[in-house]
C-alpha cells in the first residue's frame, strides 16, 4: 500500500506541477481563482457571463489566429514566425503580458497591436491599405484573430510590463497623467469611472484601477463582448471609453493610446491575465 503510494507520488507531483503552471488553466479558471481569493462586485457582476465563459466564442479565434500566424502570407509570402514580440523572434508564449515594451528596432514603446502591425509590414510586406492591417476590429478581422492567439499564450500569467527602459517609464508616467486629466464638455477623466470600488454606471459595476485583482479583468483583452457579439482589443476599449468621455477620435497605435495602455497594464502588475476574456 505504502509502496504503491510512493510510486504514485512522483506522478502526482508531476501532475500538480503541470496544473500549477497557470498557463495550463482556462481563462474561466483564472477568473474563478481570482474571485475565490478576492471579493469584487466587478468580477462577479454577471453570473451569465461566468457561465458562458467555457463556450466563449473568442476561443475559436485562437486556432484561426495561430493558423494565420504560421501561414506564409502577404507580398513577401512570409509567416509571422520571425516576429519579435519582445521575447525574441517567434516567441509568443508570455509575450503579451510583457507589453507594451520598448523595441530597439523602432526606438518606440509598442503595444501588441502596433507591434503586430509592424511585423506584418516588415516581414510580410503588407501596407496600411491592405485589409489584413486596415481592418482593426471585429471577430472576422485578421487583427483580432492574431491578437487573440497571441494574447491567449499569456493566459494566467502575471502582467509584467518591463519598465526597465527609460522610454517605458516615460510612457507609463505620461499615461498616468492622461488617466487623471480632465477635459471635454463633461470634464471627464478615466478616473471619473475607474478610481473607486463597486460603483456603477447605470447597471454596470466599474473596475477600480487601484485594485489590481479586479483591474486585471478590466484590461484583459482581447475579450468577446457579448453586447457587440465581437471580440474586442485594448485599442477598441480605449476608443470606446474616449467616445463616452466626449473626446475626439484617437488613432490606433498612436503614442497617446500606448501611453494609456502602458499605465493601465502596469496597474494590473502581478495579477494573472484572463485571455481571451468574455465581457458584457
Amino acid at each position: 500500500m505504502l509502496k504503491k503510494a510512493l510510486r504514485a507520488l512522483p506522478v502526482a507531483l508531476a501532475v500538480a506541477a503541470v496544473a500549477g503552471t497557470s498557463a495550463a488553466q482556462a481563462p474561466e479558471d483564472v477568473l474563478q481563482a481570482l474571485i475565490d481569493k478576492h471579493e469584487s462586485a466587478y468580477l462577479t457582476q454577471s453570473p451569465q457571463n461566468l457561465m458562458m465563459m467555457p463556450d466563449n466564442p473568442a476561443y475559436d479565434l485562437i486556432e484561426q489566429g495561430e493558423a494565420l500566424f504560421k501561414q506564409a502570407r502577404g507580398p513577401k509570402n512570409a509567416s509571422l514566425e520571425k516576429c519579435d514580440l519582445g521575447k525574441g523572434p517567434g516567441v509568443v508564449k508570455g509575450a503579451y503580458v510583457e507589453l507594451p515594451r520598448y523595441f530597439a528596432d523602432t526606438r518606440q514603446v509598442m503595444d501588441l497591436e502596433s507591434r503586430l502591425v509592424y511585423c506584418m509590414k516588415t516581414l510580410q510586406g503588407f501596407t496600411d491599405d491592405d485589409p489584413a492591417i486596415k481592418k482593426r476590429h471585429g471577430s472576422d478581422s485578421d487583427m483580432m484573430k492574431l491578437q487573440t492567439y497571441i494574447g491567449s499564450q499569456s493566459n494566467g500569467m502575471p502582467w509584467n510590463p518591463p519598465m526597465k527602459h527609460p522610454m517605458e517609464k516615460a510612457m507609463r508616467n505620461a499615461g498616468e497623467v492622461m488617466f487623471y486629466r480632465r477635459s471635454g464638455p463633461m470634464d471627464f477623466n478615466c478616473a471619473t469611472c475607474h478610481a473607486q470600488t463597486g460603483k456603477r454606471i447605470r447597471a454596470s459595476v466599474l473596475p477600480n484601477v487601484n485594485v489590481p485583482e479586479e483591474w486585471t479583468k478590466a484590461i484583459s483583452w482581447p475579450a468577446h463582448r457579448v453586447s457587440h457579439d465581437h471580440a474586442r482589443s485594448s485599442q477598441h476599449r480605449v476608443l470606446e471609453c474616449l467616445w463616452q468621455m466626449r473626446y475626439p477620435n484617437i488613432k490606433p497605435g498612436s503614442d497617446a493610446s500606448i501611453a494609456l495602455i502602458s499605465f493601465w497594464t502596469d496597474a494590473a502588475r502581478g495579477q494573472p491575465a484572463i485571455v481571451p476574456d468574455l465581457k458584457r
Partner: peptide
Amino acid sequence: PEALAEHLIFNTDSYD
C-alpha cells in the same frame, strides 16, 4: 510626465 502627456495629446498625431 505632465509635459510628455501634453506633447502626446497635441503633437504626435494621436488624436483627430
